[in-house]
């Protein structure tokens, strides 16, 4: 990270600590906000959060590693999470997955070269009556067909 970026990150985290309070119980909301805005929680951010909450950086890493929606490595601007649980599975999740993989030229678990999309699987999204379903960042899309899924993906901004 460049010095300037580091300064900006520190400032940002200071604001978050101010917003949620400098307690351990603020850890998740703080990490969630960093994750949302940066699509990952890089090493430097972890250290800063630890310093400002007065806990060991390993504690911060340990919490991040526990939660599926928090990560330390950079991801694409749009994180696509396709539900792989059973009702979506029997309603054609595999066909959706293949169509998306073909269109983006990557497989699940990967990020496109332009850092626009990351493909992941998620467990049940609570849309089982309208499966197959997927999340793109925070937005849920249901009743997918291969064609519809690709169209949605291409249309996100």
């Amino acid at each position: 990270m460049l010095i300037l970026e580091k300064n900006a990150m520190t400032e940002e985290i200071e604001k978050l600590v101010e917003k949620y309070g400098p307690e351990r119980s603020s850890l998740l909301p703080i990490l969630q906000d960093i994750q949302r805005d940066h699509k990952s929680i890089p090493d430097f951010a972890q250290q800063e959060v630890a310093r400002l909450l007065d806990i060991h950086p390993v504690e911060v890493f340990s919490v991040i590693s526990f939660y599926a929606f928090l990560n330390t490595e950079a991801k694409g601007k749009f994180i696509v999470r396709l539900c792989r649980t059973i009702t979506c599975d029997i309603k054609g999740k595999e066909r959706i997955a293949q169509a998306i993989e073909r269109e983006l030229g990557i497989t699940f678990g990967e990020t496109t070269k332009d850092n626009k999309y990351t493909l992941e699987y998620a467990n049940c999204l609570g849309m089982c009556d309208q499966g197959p379903a997927m999340l793109i960042n925070d937005i849920v899309y249901a009743n997918l067909t291969p064609e519809k899924a690709v169209k949605i993906l291409k249309g996100v901004k």
Binding site: R24, L27, V63, A68
Partner: peptide
Amino acid sequence: IRMGSGAYICGEETALIESLEGNRGE
């Protein structure tokens, strides 16, 4: 309102509380 971060176990009430306190949801 507090948010979870993609962990089924956090629905278990004591894991949920751990998570609220800023810990792994164990």
